[in-house]
């Protein structure tokens, strides 16, 4: 078991985070010294044009990538000091991911896709329970090929939340969905944030999504342009785009 987290601390603290791809004149600066704090239990939306660095930040916070410079703390743990195996353990026990293209295993049913995670997590919920949270309680034994895009995305969310993650990262979770299905997916993410007290970070192009966030972080050119607190959080159903 990993040791308990000190929930009084912010979920993430970054300091001078830089990410450079490539070398010399062709080098691309994806992040240019980002310092930010993400309080635990919030729903945060990251906005910004393509290439502004929001996905890069998400990947680093999610333990998929290491920064070129700077430090990242997850509660009291220094992610930048972790090796590959510790990062795997970090993802395994604390992090849920939802991708634009779902990334379900085509050879596993909805239930089995979720079980893939519950089998290895420390404190998982039942796979069927996770699927009923996302409204798929009746489609447990369907393969991804038998599900619509929205349903597949909800399975992906169920898979991400089944381990009861500390943080949930969503990279364009509604990007491949129509607006009605997209709202249903956002509803689920809002529920997870509220009921499971999971810190949720959503990267999106859809500015309207920001209305349901506690905090909105706007990116431009590899750095944070501004951070906005949202005193009037809207329900997912109220969002229009």
């Amino acid at each position: 078991m990993s040791r308990p987290l000190d929930k009084r601390l912010p979920a993430f603290r970054t300091h001078g985070l830089t990410k450079v791809y490539g070398e010399g004149p062709s080098a691309v600066h994806a992040l240019r010294g980002v310092s930010v704090e993400i309080p635990a239990g919030e729903l945060v939306v990251l906005l910004g044009p393509s290439g502004s660095g929001k996905s890069t930040l998400l990947n680093i916070l999610g333990g998929l990538d290491q920064p070129s410079e700077g430090r990242v703390h997850f509660f009291d743990q220094d992610l930048t000091a972790k090796d590959e195996d510790s990062l795997t353990r970090y993802r395994r026990h604390h992090v849920g991911f939802v991708f634009q293209f779902y990334n379900l295993m085509p050879s596993l049913t909805a239930r089995e896709n979720v079980e893939l995670v519950t089998e290895i997590a420390e404190n998982p919920m039942n796979a069927a329970e996770a699927l009923s949270i996302v409204g798929l309680g009746k489609r447990l034994d369907h393969f991804p090929s038998e599900l619509s895009g929205g349903e597949q995305q909800r399975v992906a969310i169920a898979r991400a939340i089944a381990k009861q993650p500390t943080v949930l990262f969503c990279d364009e979770p509604t990007g491949a969905l129509d607006s009605e299905t997209g709202r249903a997916v956002l509803r689920v993410l809002q529920d997870v944030n509220r009921k499971l007290d999971t810190t949720v970070m959503i990267v999106t192009h859809a500015a309207a999504t920001a209305a349901m966030a506690h905090r909105i972080i706007r990116f431009a050119d590899g750095d944070i342009r501004d951070i906005e607190q949202n005193p009037q959080v809207k329900e997912a159903e109220e969002i229009q785009w």
Partner: peptide, 26 residues
Amino acid sequence: PPTPPNFSQTISFGPGLRKWLDQPTR
């Protein structure tokens, strides 16, 4: 976006088998 390859015609391992086969094996 790609449609996932269809696996519905393969096997749905019964509850007996499930105990023995983890997801990767399936």
